[in-house]
Amino acid sequence: MRADAAANHRAIVSAARRLIAERGGDVPLSAVAEGAGVGIATLYRRFPLREDLIRAVAVNVRDEVVGLIERHRDMVATDPAIGWPALVRALAAFRPGATIPGIMTAASEIIADRPDANEALEEEIDQVRSAVFDALSGPLEAAKEGGALRADVTATRFMLGLAALTRPLPVGGPKEPGQEEWLTEIYLAGLRPDGPARSTA
């Protein structure tokens, strides 16, 4: 791929990821092209189908999240009391609750419209999820063994909690400086072994 084509590819994927986080999975491709600083024809040359762009964004998110986990893996293993909170803060700052639901919604709509043609897309989205969960499993267990994480936390529970924590607030709603960071610390406190017990009711 030529340098200019590679730069356009990165710009389009980056703009699509940002706009999906801001507006959801049905963001117009014309808005993506504008956000990337390219013409719509350039976007279609790089991504002839909407599903091609959604696939690229999903892979980009996977690479970013798995990369974050890998960069914290050794720290979590050697010093869970410091490494695990650092990983959770890094993942929260990535704001998966803003981006991932938009990707899932866009993929679901594409699959619903063309189920036969998009079985591969559904499988690839599942593979993205599996890659993140697989990468997280090691640090999760290390944090439990090191006393930094309660035993009943699974990868699914953790990621669902993180997604809820980082969901966008309603447009025009009240805002508080440092709100996301404060919520992250509350989440971390609840994940500790000495956090509140899970209700069995």
Rank of each mutant, 00 (worst) to 15 (best):
residue 40 I to H: 15
residue 176 E to A: 12
residue 48 P to C: 02
residue 20 I to T: 12
residue 59 V to L: 05
residue 114 R to P: 04
residue 65 V to C: 06
residue 22 E to R: 14
residue 114 R to I: 11
residue 8 N to A: 13
residue 54 I to N: 03
residue 126 D to P: 00
residue 10 R to V: 09
residue 44 Y to G: 04
residue 59 V to G: 00
residue 65 V to D: 04
residue 177 P to L: 01
residue 183 L to W: 10
residue 83 G to A: 08
residue 141 E to P: 00
residue 12 I to T: 03
residue 141 E to G: 05
residue 188 L to W: 08
residue 15 A to R: 01
residue 39 G to A: 11
residue 201 A to P: 05
residue 20 I to C: 11
residue 7 A to T: 11
residue 95 R to P: 09
residue 22 E to A: 14
residue 201 A to D: 07
residue 21 A to D: 08
residue 124 E to P: 05
residue 49 L to R: 15
residue 186 I to P: 12
residue 164 A to V: 15
residue 60 N to F: 08
residue 133 F to K: 06
residue 57 V to N: 06
residue 82 I to F: 11
residue 48 P to G: 01
residue 98 A to S: 09
residue 2 R to T: 12
residue 173 G to Q: 04
residue 189 A to D: 15
residue 144 K to C: 08
residue 96 P to K: 04
residue 90 A to L: 10
residue 198 R to N: 13
residue 7 A to K: 13
residue 34 E to W: 02
residue 101 P to D: 05
residue 84 W to P: 02
residue 195 G to C: 07
residue 76 V to F: 03
residue 195 G to V: 04
residue 61 V to K: 00
residue 25 G to D: 07
residue 188 L to N: 06
residue 157 R to T: 08
residue 132 V to F: 07
residue 20 I to M: 15
residue 27 V to E: 01
residue 21 A to M: 08
residue 100 I to F: 02
residue 16 A to N: 04
